[in-house]
Design a protein around this nucleic acid. Structure first.
Lengths: 120, 120
DNA sequence: CCGTATCCTAGCTGATACTG
DNA sequence: CAGTATCAGCTAGGATACGG
């Protein structure tokens, strides 16, 4: 039953795995307002390391969600910008973010109740 | 700069971390059509282990996204069902799933191009 | 300024066996 | 049927140092 299932063929799993990593949503969200350079992103996405920022940006570029433009200035500068595909994913993801902001308190109180042994 | 940021205070991070685990979206999606028993879920969510199913269900229950009802029959049966909060998150998440299904091919071809060295 | 390379650890995850 | 317990492997992620 389960063995005839190939995870790489499942769009839901496959896509969600790529946009639901620790940093990906925050990066996409930050770039939604417009193109940013590496150092700007590093400042605006709290607590991310350069290593993870680079890796996440590469993954997103690979998936066609953002573009990377290198300006051969001195010192070099690199700009990241959402592609059409990247902008399009921000519609549903934006809705999810809105949900998160609107229902965070409900989840917190549900957790409090559960932890206090309210489960019947 | 980054040190004045508390991840537990960030709704986006906090909520997304909980609904974007490996199994959570699939479980929510499966329960969207109605209540299911543990064994039914185990069959319908491909490749999940009992261990992970139990753990994911507990987390979702703790966050108030689903309810757990035990029927003291012999042998016991347990039903899981989305709460109002769980149903409400399926609106944006359903949109994301739709996006995933509609844009999976685009992502795959973007990846192919990238891997073939098309990056300028 | 924009990365890469290397090492290292925490915790997620699966496999397996057992219980009420 | 619906879990729990235990153990081991893997890998995402962080710290640090270095390079173009």
């Amino acid at each position: 039953m389960a063995s005839d299932f190939d995870p790489t063929m499942c769009p839901v799993r496959n896509v969600l795995d790529h946009i639901s990593t620790k940093w990906t949503p925050l990066i996409l969200l930050t770039l939604q307002s417009g193109a940013l350079r590496f150092s700007q992103l590093h400042k605006q996405v709290p607590d991310i390391s350069k290593r993870m920022l680079t890796q996440s940006l590469r993954d997103l570029e690979r998936d066609g969600l953002l573009s990377r433009k290198v300006f051969p200035t001195k010192p070099p500068s690199v700009e990241y910008e959402l592609t059409e595909l990247g902008l399009s994913v921000m519609v549903p993801m934006g809705a999810l973010v809105d949900w998160a902001e609107n229902n965070f308190e409900k989840m917190k109180s549900a957790r409090r109740d559960f932890d206090n042994g309210m489960q019947v």
